[in-house]
């Protein structure tokens, strides 16, 4: 076991996969000599050289589109978008091309690319360095979207993403990079894509969330336990396609459901989770489905009080948990 931060786990995943498979390579802005603006690829350029750790021109559609082309040859590219907020120029490549490559060619071609992008707020990143854009891609069959909540998950899910035969969007929370640390086994860690994870068991209410909100929820749940309420906490891990079975079982278990996302509330990942529960669990629910999310304003402001007002936090999660528990 070694104590590792979330970003160190990401770095380890890339190193291990690049050592294991010569076809794996990294491309993106500042990923080479600089080792990434967050240092996620630190040491990779030195170990694998400029041919496999490629500093690209500043052009996101090309980062993804060139990655797609290379993946069609059989390479396993990891395309890094510096901030998820800058992924929009590449949306055509992701949705029109990567998501549909296998389907439109009737299984002739495939596109085993991993697209990594830091997302999330609470780091004074303002409107364009704080967003959560997963919902934009979460209605596109052909894509998979994973969002790790812990260093161990960051390691195991990234390794699985790189090995996946289909395009995977891997959204990593930039505030989690150095905030979260834990003991990780030195042996290989692989975490199956498409499966949710029960982080904590409880009988009083079910919380379903993902990403950094899992950490807020873990802490809030500990505090809530002192009030006599035990939380069943489910981390979606893969936000698309959703693990419907796990969602349904978790909702039925307690009959009270709180869904949490850092994203804007409307049309979010938890909107779909809510629809799944509504479709399958009507007679098992003892309360309406509750949602805690960012307000429906365009994005997170820079000024600290406004940022704090926008952002989901441990305190907000605790208050909402208590409300649901006491319903």
């Amino acid at each position: 076991m070694t104590v590792m931060s979330y970003i160190e786990a990401i770095n380890r995943a890339m190193k291990e996969e690049m050592r294991r498979d010569d076809d794996v390579f990294l491309l993106g802005e500042d990923v080479g000599k600089r080792g990434g603006v967050f240092r996620a690829s630190e040491g990779l350029y030195e170990e694998f050289g400029e041919a496999r750790v490629i500093d690209t021109p500043l052009a996101e559609s090309a980062i993804v589109g060139v990655g797609i082309g290379a993946s069609m040859y059989g390479m396993k590219p990891i395309a890094e978008i510096q901030f998820v907020d800058f992924i929009l120029p590449a949306v055509n490549q992701i949705i029109s091309e990567a998501a549909k490559m296998r389907y439109r060619s009737n299984n002739d071609w495939s596109c085993p690319i991993t697209i990594r992008a830091p997302y999330g707020g609470g780091v004074h990143g303002a409107l364009y360095h704080s967003q959560s854009l997963e919902a934009l891609f979460a209605s596109q069959p052909g894509l998979k979207i994973v969002m790790p909540s812990s260093p161990k998950d960051a390691l195991g899910l990234l390794k699985a993403a790189i090995r996946d035969p289909d395009p995977v969007l891997y959204f990593e929370h930039k505030k989690a990079y150095r905030l979260l640390k834990e003991d990780i086994p030195d042996e290989e860690v692989l975490i199956e894509i498409g499966k949710a994870n029960t982080v904590r068991e409880g009988d009083d209410l079910t919380v379903i969330t993902y990403g950094l909100c899992v950490e807020f929820s873990k802490k809030a749940a500990e505090k809530l336990a002192t009030q006599g309420y035990e939380v069943e906490l489910v981390d979606l891990r893969t936000v698309y396609p959703l693990d419907e079975q796990a969602i349904i079982e978790a909702a039925k278990k307690t009959g009270k459901v709180l869904l949490i996302t850092e994203d804007n509330k409307e049309g979010s990942i938890i909107s779909e989770v809510s629809a799944i529960i509504a479709e399958h669990c009507l007679f098992d629910l003892d309360a309406p489905i509750f949602r805690l999310a960012a307000p429906n304003v365009p994005a997170m402001p820079y000024a600290p009080p406004l940022e704090k007002a926008f952002m989901v936090s441990e305190d907000k999660v605790y208050e909402k948990m208590l409300e649901v528990a006491q319903y």
Binding site: I68, G69, M72
Partner: peptide, 11 residues
């Protein structure tokens, strides 16, 4: 066009 460029990168 980027796909062909990516293919060339792989080659």
């Amino acid at each position: 066009v980027p796909h062909a460029v990516g293919m060339a990168l792989a080659l």
